[in-house]
Design a protein around this nucleic acid. Structure first.
Lengths: 228, 228
DNA sequence: AGGCCCGATTGACATCGATCAATTCGGGCC
DNA sequence: GGCCCGAATTGATCGATGTCAATCGGGCCT
């Protein structure tokens, strides 16, 4: 479990700068953040932070995937967001939230940048581009989370799987082929399903022209899938 | 269905100014917003805006309750947030979201203030207190929505009802009495339940010392309820 | 190439919650 | 205080999904 924490290399600075969160920052703010970023690598399954820990960092994922989840009293855990390359998470920007309200775990080997949220907060006060980026990021997360919540309440498992697939199909394709960027395990969690239920949802979609081989998913009739 | 749209009276300005969103604004920004606010009253069940409509307003609720919901293809609708007095909703702050991604409906007779989100956006660029207020509001909404999502996935109906009750009990009380601020209908929606399921959840909680009479709920043993 | 191991699938079952229908309740109004 | 309508409860049933257990399969390592 490599856990060295380094300054960003040129390559990493490039990756970070292309991120949705950093793309629109003023050159000044961007430089400040890049300079203070700590780059770290973590092995699959490593914990990034846990529910209740002191929240002073703010993360930007460079490569790999991360699970954000909460645990119930009985020990079961529920994912509510899966972060991929370029995503920002744990935006603890209001001073009040001193503790992380959830846990974060590397779903595979990852590389991420750690920022100090106090610093970001102060920067946002002086530089409107930072404040704007925060607002845009939060808005987007809120939209996405709301979407997930509504989907859970409105759609069955096969419908949610179909939605997921359709979101990454070219809009006007007749057929399509998709390669999942991670294990089905993760996909199940992000759809709020047990792995078994995901499997069954895929079988249910066979009749709609969806065939699965490992991580590769063939969709013979995109339009038909939309009707599910 | 009264739908007049007026300048804010002194009383309404006072209410608005005490709102979580406006409380921390600079005097300048506060005055600007209060001056441009349109106050309107709507009858129960009136639509405030609908999914897909042009999003140019930003609302702050003064009195009553509002349902935010989305509709599925089959016409069923799912609430994802219930707004009460002082709440802000439809924060369409990034220029990109030109359309409301959901619908809003008055759950009872309400009084609300309508702001221009373009104006708020511009104000946020110049005044850091506005940007800060937006960040705080969005953070809080994100936290709350995440909480709901996780609760849905982790807890059964009686547990979610118990959670709701416990959140509005004095922390250290042995017993408590709560008066619901709205119809059970609304509560069901906000917990993601059919009204029948809410009823059944309440009966299930009888064994834990919860008794219901109309809108009044008696909890004989708060600590016991926590164990559910 | 073979074997191993973890992830994925399948089956059987239990449980939860939605739905539909039939009462009952409660609160607002006269 | 009584009436009446909409809201809430209760019952019966069904479908969806979680859970546990067994098996299968693919990828990876040697």
């Amino acid at each position: 479990m490599l856990d060295k924490s380094n300054k960003a290399t040129t390559r990493e600075r490039g990756l970070l700068a292309k991120t949705a969160f950093m793309r629109s920052l003023s050159p000044n703010a961007l430089a400040t953040l890049l300079d203070s970023a700590q780059i770290m690598s973590l092995a699959a399954r490593a914990s990034i932070f846990r529910e209740g820990e002191n929240a002073q960092a703010f993360y930007c994922l460079l490569t790999g995937y991360v699970r954000l989840y909460r645990m119930g009293k009985d020990g079961r855990q529920a994912d509510f967001r899966i972060c991929g390359p370029g995503d920002v998470f744990a935006e603890c920007l209001i001073p009040q939230d001193a503790r992380y309200p959830y846990s974060a775990q590397a779903a595979e080997n990852i590389c991420l940048a750690k920022l100090d949220c106090r610093e970001v907060r102060l920067l946002a006060e002086r530089d409107a581009t930072v404040a704007n980026a925060l607002i845009a990021t939060l808005s987007e997360h809120l939209r996405a989370t709301t979407e997930v919540l509504v989907n859970d309440r409105l759609h069955t498992a096969p419908q949610r799987v179909a939605d997921y697939l359709l979101e990454r199909c070219p809009v006007d394709a007749g057929s399509a082929s998709i390669r999942l960027p991670f294990q089905k395990n993760l996909l199940a969690g992000m759809l709020g399903l047990a792995p078994e239920a995901l499997s069954r949802a895929f079988s249910a979609l066979r009749r709609a022209g969806v065939s699965v081989r490992g991580r590769v998913i063939q969709i013979s009739d995109v339009k038909a899938l939309r009707e599910i």
